[in-house]
Amino acid sequence: MPEVTALTEDERDCYQEITNVAMGQAADRLARLLGVYVVLPIPNVNIIERSEFKMTIKSLEDAPSVSAVCQGFIGAGVAGEALLIFNDASFKDISQLLKYSQTQTQEEELEMLMDVANVLNGACIQGIGKQLDINFSQSHPVILGRHRPINELLDEKHATWQRTMAIEINYTIEDHNINCDLLLLFTEESVHHMNRLISFLLED
């Protein structure tokens, strides 16, 4: 199979628009859960090499410490991972919105992280699947790390892939100090398959 080294401008535009719709659905779920307005960004879509991985997370690079949850997904011909990375500074505001006590335990914080990950990852993955007519199954979310510098968390030595399509969505919440990054990483084989699927959407 030939390597996927870059996307055409039309392909990138198409993935961006599909993501735009899916992240809107995810934001709606989160907005209802927390009773807030979620500010939607323009998603970044790129084919990246393993060595470029850390550079994709621009919006959180200044965060002193982060916590992350990852969750695999797989459907017909397409597989990948959703990585939700929280700026640790967000926890205080999230716990207020979810009406947890001021001094939260480690367990409560973990529960919060999992709750938000379930809502955001799930809605986003299913939203993309629906538009591509793929029924994705999701694995259980797994904690990738907590309260660590982002550089440590995303150590490329642990990555099993060489090249991936990365979709980055930076969610912020209006009037609150909450900032998280949802990264969707698709395997190279998946990108071949998805490029065929979207070619129908791109026809004139």
Partner: peptide
Amino acid sequence: VSGDIQPEA
């Protein structure tokens, strides 16, 4: 016409 389907939007 938007993907931002939050009631607030």
